[in-house]
Amino acid sequence: MSTDKIQHRTFIVLLIMVSLAFFALLAPFFGAVLWAGIFAIIFMPLQNRMLARMPKRPTLASLCTLLICIVVAIIPLITISLSLVHEGTTLYQRIQSGELDFGAYIDRVQEAAPRLQALLAQIGVDFSEVRTWLKSAAATASKGLARNAVNIGQLSFTFLISFGVMLYLLFFFLRDGTRLMRQIRAAIPLSDAHKQRLFKKFGEVVRATMKGNVLVALVQGALGGVIFWILGIQGALLWGALMAVLSLLPAVGAALIWAPVAAYFLLTGHIWQGVVLVAFGVGPIGLADNILRPRLVGQQTQLPDYLILVTTLGGLALIGISGFVLGPLVAALFIAVWDLSLHEFGERRPQEPTTEDL
């Protein structure tokens, strides 16, 4: 083996080892790095406008963009999170005191709909087992709320560090993002056409996923919270937030919250509340998903709904809330890379002989 080949392979091994060590160091701040990159991609058009107005002051332009990002996106998110902590604490106290008993709701359904009980018994569903399971699930959830409430103070320092790192990185991503992207593109051993296509797909998926999914989540969560508040359901803000989170799952989403509540209303004789909730859930809440999501997410990412659903669930299960962005992003890049490979190898593949050639 020649000296040049040995040096080349040694360099490749060294490059891989150093890269793995670098990513291992970034692992504790994975969320901070990821969200700094996401916010930088979303607010980069605004940063470009700022640079157009202040071409000789890139640092000041980046600070202005960062301030707008904090006011528009970060402060509202923190405010909503604090409100949810309060709602969750209140719900936990009500469960612990016995004021909120989920088993009692099953008893009311059993008393109001004996035929339903007989029908479910025929398929092997026992109301008493459902009641026991629901009470156990409520107890487990209340313990989780209590544990998280205790951990809020313990995790606040870690959260503040991650939040500070995210803002710090966001500033430099905004200021030096264009130069960093040029360097990354230059380091990738692909043709310019392939790199341009991959980076274009990367930006499209991030913007579409964030704008589309977040907008749909906010709309569905707000509509669900409002209708719950109108119907007098306690904890409307918390239920609205849960609908917003679940709306990240296409098709099913918010219905996992409002549909059981509507069924409870109908079975226990609260007909008009159930009808209103069903009409509002199928109408405004459902239309927000069926109309906004395909326009904002599907068309730009060119991903089918079932693939978005599966990859979103996989991302959420793997890395938590950040997975709703990373899941569809990986899927889109997977499709883009394989599309490039089909074009690349399809063009190089020898043509089969035709009858004219024979």
Score class of each variant (00 low, 15 high):
I38P: 09
E111D: 14
C64D: 02
L66P: 02
T65R: 03
T65K: 00
A61S: 14
I95D: 00
L63F: 11
D101W: 02
S83N: 13
S62Y: 04
T59W: 06
E99M: 09
M54T: 04
T90W: 01
Q96W: 04
L60H: 08
P76G: 02
G103D: 00
A104Q: 12
M44L: 06
L91E: 00
V109K: 01
Y92R: 12
L67V: 12
R53K: 14
Y105L: 15
D107I: 12
I106A: 10
I95W: 05
I38A: 11
V71R: 05
Q93H: 11
A61H: 05
I80Y: 08
T79A: 15
R94W: 01
G98C: 11
L91V: 06
L84V: 11
L84D: 04
Q110T: 14
T89L: 10
S97P: 05
R108V: 09
T65A: 11
I68T: 12
M50W: 07
D107Y: 04
T59Q: 04
A61P: 09
I42L: 15
K56S: 15
I74S: 06
S97G: 13
E99Q: 12
D101I: 07
T65N: 15
P58L: 05
L51A: 06
I68M: 12
T90F: 05
G98E: 04
Q47T: 08
R108M: 13
M54R: 13
L60M: 09
G98W: 10
A104L: 11
